[in-house]
Nucleic acid binder design. Structure first.
Lengths: 190, 190
DNA sequence: CTTAATTGCAACAGCTCTGACTCAGTTAAC
DNA sequence: GTTAACTGAGTCAGAGCTGTTGCAATTAAG
């Protein structure tokens, strides 16, 4: 890293990242020009801050993954009963992932900082699931890696939900509920 | 449609479609040149058979959706108990979707023939799920649209599975099992 | 065998994007 | 208030992709 950016430059960077998310989510092949325009910035400025298109996208991914990890940390999943933790984490993740769906929906580059963030995230997730299994919340025979991927997929699906009632907590409940019990007839039902 | 193609021309079309799936799955921005090369054909031939890049992609999607519908029809889901039908359909769909993951993983154009295929497919799926619900396999309170999307998502996840044992039937069982019961402790368990 | 379709090759025009550079004007920082 | 960073605008060269055309050679179809 070079020295710290001046305040206005930092504002530009943030604006560009947010604009990139917005524009690229609508069209993954959008040009730097379109991104610059959406950011309210000249195209040259984008190139000044990000060496290349790829660099911009990687920075975008890294920023988003950092926020995602932060959102999970905020839920303090390690000091809470698994079921509660699952709900909280899910709600937080839904919030972040809704805002950065493009950045978080891309396969990340091998060596980048984003990849490390994903690894950390995956580890935390599996740890939480492991605790859930240990406390009898999950089937003792469950394959945690599979459960984790199903969990991710459910979150992704929940984001595409288009109900009139976009209550994040309700969505989180739906996700966790589906993850735990599926769509089959519930134990308590006649 | 114009008149029927000559035999060699038809072979070309098929080769191009298969090559397009292969190449575009690896890189959605691959050029027509790369597709032509993979198909063992000159670039001009590709343009002769498909007016534009977009036309090629739409044709690809339509072809894949047609195959997918065929695969479902082969499972005769309407004349079989829902649970069996679910397994069979899942296994068939996994087979097709594995071979055409790019073509089937794209948002389809509004008016195209692929869109109609998707609608038909969705309708069949909901019908099958409805029968499953009626026979007590699903929670009576289940939102079939949500279940359908979860089902799609699970199939997509199962395709990314990288176990040493890629037995399609086992994968289908995993999908259906997860859809019905989730990852939580099973009713029969202590 | 005769005909018409099909193909490969080569070349061309047109377009869009990228990334770099300069320079004058603006703005934060100290 | 002085300085250094930052920005917008304009320009430029280079590259890649698309879609088209003409022509000669090959190949399926009747």
């Amino acid at each position: 890293m070079g020295r710290a950016l001046r305040a206005d430059a930092e504002r530009s960077v943030r604006a560009i990242l947010e604009a990139a998310e917005l524009v690229l989510a609508a069209d993954p092949n959008a040009s730097m020009e379109q991104i610059a325009e959406a950011a309210g910035v000249a195209r040259t400025t984008v190139h000044r801050r990000f060496a290349s298109r790829q660099a911009l996208i990687e920075a975008l991914a890294e920023s988003a993954v950092r926020q995602l990890n932060q959102a999970i940390e905020d839920a303090r999943p390690d000091t809470t009963p698994p079921l509660i933790a699952l709900h909280r984490v899910t709600a937080n993740v839904l919030r972040i992932k809704g805002a950065w769906s493009y950045a978080l929906g891309r396969p990340t580059e091998e060596g980048g900082g984003a990849a490390a963030g994903w690894d950390q995230l995956g580890a935390r997730c599996v740890e939480l699931l492991g605790r859930a299994k240990a406390e009898g919340l999950l089937d003792p025979a469950a394959d945690l890696e599979w459960v984790r991927r199903v969990y991710y997929a459910l979150i992704g699906e929940a984001l595409h939900d288009e109900r009139p009632d976009p209550d994040p907590d309700a969505l989180a409940t739906l996700v966790v509920d589906t993850l735990l019990y599926g769509a089959g007839r519930r134990p308590g039902t006649v």
